[in-house]
Simulated assay, not measured.
Amino acid sequence: MADIQQQVEALAGVLGCAVLVEDQRHRPLWWSAQGKVDDVRMRSILQREPPPGAAALVTRLGLPDARDPVRTPALPDVDMAERWCVPLRHGRDLVGYLWVLDADGRVAESDLGPVVACAATAADVIARREPSEEDRRHRRDHLLARLVAGPDEDAAAELRELERLSPTARVAVAWPAEPAGWVLPGGGSVHVDPQPGSTFASGTPLPLADLSLAVQRARTTARALRAGARLASPTWDALGEWHLVAGAPPDLEPGLIHRGAEVLAAQKRPELLETARCVLDNGGDVTVSAEQLHIHRTTLYYRLDRIEELTGVNLRLAAGRDALQMALHLAAYRAVAD
C-alpha cells in the first residue's frame, strides 16, 4: 500500500499536479499532498464521496467503459476543474480511477506515460487486496450480473475465487427468491451446492458458469405455475408437457393447435374457458371438477354441452381433448407476463 502512495507523491511531483486514486465507487485510496485542489477533490478526500454532479459526469462521459486516458472538461457548477482520468482495470474489470487535476493544461497526452504506469500498478494492488464485506458484495453482484447475461467461464472462476467455492460448484435458482441465497434482480435467488433432495424452480443444479440457463429455467417454471400448471413438484424437472408450451415458437398461435381455444377466449364471460381447463386438467373427471369449480354437477353438465357446441370437443371423451388442452395451456402461458 505504501508503495502506491509513494508513486502517487512522485507522480504529482513530476507533473506538478494533484493526483488521486480511488476505487470504482469513487472512494479515495491514495492521494498526493501537493498540487492545487478543487472542491471535488477536497470533498472526495474529506467526505469520501464526490458531489453528485461530478459522479454523474463519470458515467455521462463513458469513463467506466474507457480503455485509455480521458481528459474531462471543467464543471463549474460543482467547482470541478479540468483533469485527466485513467480508468483502472484488472483484466476486463474496472477497479477504480486515477485522476490528475490539471486546470492549467500543463499535462499533455505525451506526458501520460508515468501516469498510465502508476495506474497499472494501482489496479493490480486494488485487485489483489482483501475486499471489505461491502466491496465483496458489490463485486459478487457484478459477477452474478455477468453470469446471468450468459455463459461466462471467466466470471465463474472469479466468483469461485471470491467466495472460496469448489471448482465443481453447482447452482440452483429459486423464483421467487428464498432465504439463504444470493438475491438476483427481478426476484430470484441463487443457491450454491444445494442439499440433495432440495427442490428449486430451476431443477437439477447446473455448473456455475451456466447460471444464465438456471435463471431461464427458473423463470419458465414460475411462469408456467402462474399460468395454472399442475406439477408434481414446482421445478423445471417436473414441467412435463409444459416444456412444449414454453418452447413453442412465437408465431405458433393457440388457435393453430385447436380453434376451440380462440372460440372459448372470445366468449363474453370466462366460465366456459375456466371449466374447459379444469375438466381437461382433471382428465375428464366431472365429480372432482365440480368440486374445484364450486358448482353443482348439473351446472357443469350444462357447461360441458355448451363447450362441445362451440368447440366440437366432448371433454369426457378422447377425440380432440389433448389438442384443445395444449392450446388452452399455450394461451394461458402467453397471457402471463414473464
Rank of each mutant, 00 (worst) to 15 (best):
L147S: 00
A123C: 00
D141A: 15
A103Q: 13
H138L: 15
E153W: 08
P131T: 00
A123Q: 03
W84M: 10
A117S: 09
V148F: 07
R128E: 07
H138P: 07
H142M: 10
T121W: 02
L112T: 09
D65M: 03
D65A: 13
G113I: 14
A155V: 07
W84D: 12
G150M: 07
R140A: 13
E153R: 14
P64F: 09
P87N: 01
L159T: 00
A119S: 05
L88T: 06
L147P: 05
R146N: 02
L162E: 09
Y97W: 08
T121S: 05
R106C: 15
G62S: 12
D65C: 03
L159E: 02
R128Q: 15
S110Y: 03
D102F: 09
V148K: 01
H138I: 14
L144G: 07
G113P: 10
D104P: 11
C85S: 15
E130G: 11
V115N: 09
I126L: 14
L98C: 06
A145V: 02
G113S: 15
H90D: 14
A120G: 02
R160E: 00
A120C: 03
A157R: 12
P151Q: 13
R89W: 08
A66Y: 01
E109G: 06
R146Y: 03
V148S: 08
T72L: 12
Y97I: 04
E130W: 11
T121C: 01
E109N: 00
E163K: 01
A122W: 05
R60M: 13
T59Q: 15
V70D: 08
P69I: 02
G96E: 09
A127P: 03
P114S: 09
T59M: 15
R129C: 00
A149D: 12
L144S: 12
E158H: 01
D93L: 10
R89G: 10
E153F: 08
S132L: 09
A66F: 05
L61R: 13
L75M: 15
A157M: 02
V115C: 11
A120D: 03
L112R: 06
L162P: 10
R67T: 13
D141M: 12
R71E: 02
G105Y: 00
R71D: 06
D65H: 08
G105L: 06
R71S: 04
R164S: 10
P69D: 05
L143W: 01
P69W: 02
A123F: 02
L162C: 12
H138D: 15
R60F: 09
A74T: 09
G91R: 04
P151D: 13
V125E: 02
A157K: 01
A122Q: 04
V115P: 07
A108M: 10
V116K: 05
G91H: 07
M80R: 07
H138M: 10
P73C: 09
A149N: 07
G96Y: 06
G105R: 08
L112P: 08
D102P: 11
E158I: 03
R67D: 14
A108C: 10
L61S: 11
G150N: 05
D79R: 13
L63I: 07
L75T: 15
V116G: 06
E153T: 10
P64G: 09
A108I: 07
D68W: 11
D65S: 14
A117R: 11
E134D: 15
V95A: 06
E163H: 04
D152T: 02
R60Y: 11
V70R: 08
R137E: 13
D68F: 11
D111W: 02
D111C: 07
R60P: 00
